[in-house]
């Protein structure tokens, strides 16, 4: 069989922008990190953006309080320290938390801890003005914000979940901040058009099953340079989600950009093409 991932690694390496380590422990579990890296290697993926062990946020982890946020980010910092060449951290935040706490957490995780971006899940709608001081800080630091987005015909999973259109409102108000919207597979064609006129926004390819034509459609509307491979591991499979990109009828160069080059550029990673 012409295996899905036969043409393994691309120049600069494949990077998964959407990885969680979710084993229920305050410290990253060695077995989970090793399993993640072992399975990723088979798909030619060498680095991961860790978006946090969200369950450490507490019972209502989507609306985590400061203690929960701190636990999530400490877990990420420890995983980064254990595998500095493999794990890139994003700082998980809840805009509803006190401003002082959030600013201190950005200092702890990004300025001092070396994280490369911020991650918002669904704590408050992206149209909420409590995002403003956080986005202003992100602009000053020159870091990227990833925001969960989805269009769900069955209704939002959480009332505070944002659609791509709502996240686009935020990105439009902060045109100098680099954003990555999560889940092209959740926003689909409608989501693509929400961000088509926002050059500061990229779309991660994760979300749902690997439906044909969607990656091609997004690449045509946005340009392949605005798509970034994400798996949403461990809920999803890294190889399967990479297969969504490799199965798309795009050029090898476009595959390469989506699987790693674009994220290296956005995060200004060492060795990234200008």
């Amino acid at each position: 069989m012409a295996a899905a991932n036969a043409a393994k690694p691309v120049t600069g390496g494949r990077i998964d922008v959407h990885t969680h380590l979710m084993a229920p422990a305050l410290d990253p579990e060695e077995w989970e990190m090793e399993e993640c890296l072992r399975l990723a290697k088979r798909a030619g993926v060498s680095r991961h953006v860790l978006l946090g062990n969200l369950y450490l946020g507490g019972k209502d982890w989507v609306h985590a309080e400061p203690d929960g946020i701190r636990a999530v980010n400490t877990h990420t910092l420890k995983a980064m320290a254990r595998h500095p060449d493999r794990f890139i951290g994003f700082c998980y935040l809840n805009p509803a938390n006190p401003v002082d706490f959030t600013q201190d957490e950005i200092t702890r995780c990004v300025v001092d801890g070396g994280m490369k971006g911020l991650k918002f899940e669904a704590a408050v709608k992206a149209t909420d003005r409590r995002y403003d001081p956080i986005c202003e800080r992100a602009e000053k630091l020159g870091i990227t914000i990833m925001h969960h987005t989805w269009y769900n015909v069955l209704g939002c999973v959480w009332p505070t979940e944002s659609t791509p259109a709502e996240a686009a409102d935020l990105a439009r108000r902060f045109p100098n901040v680099s954003f990555i919207f999560a889940h092209l597979g959740g926003g689909r064609e409608r989501g693509v058009h929400d961000l088509v006129d926002l050059p500061n926004v990229c779309y991660d390819t994760s979300g749902s099953y690997a439906e044909t034509e969607l990656v091609e459609y997004a690449a045509k509307q946005l340009g392949a340079e605005r798509l970034i491979f994400g798996s949403d591991y461990p809920g999803r499979n890294i190889g399967v989600q990479a297969g969504r990109v490799l199965g798309a009828r795009l050029s090898p160069r476009e595959h390469e950009l989506i699987l790693g080059g674009n994220l290296a550029r956005v995060l200004k990673l060492e060795g990234a093409a200008a």
Partner: peptide
């Protein structure tokens, strides 16, 4: 589930360790 899903995505499931 072709052609509704990418073949390469399903095939990756066979690329097991």
């Amino acid at each position: 589930h072709s052609p509704l899903l990418y073949f390469e995505a399903s095939a990756a499931k066979l690329d097991s360790d």
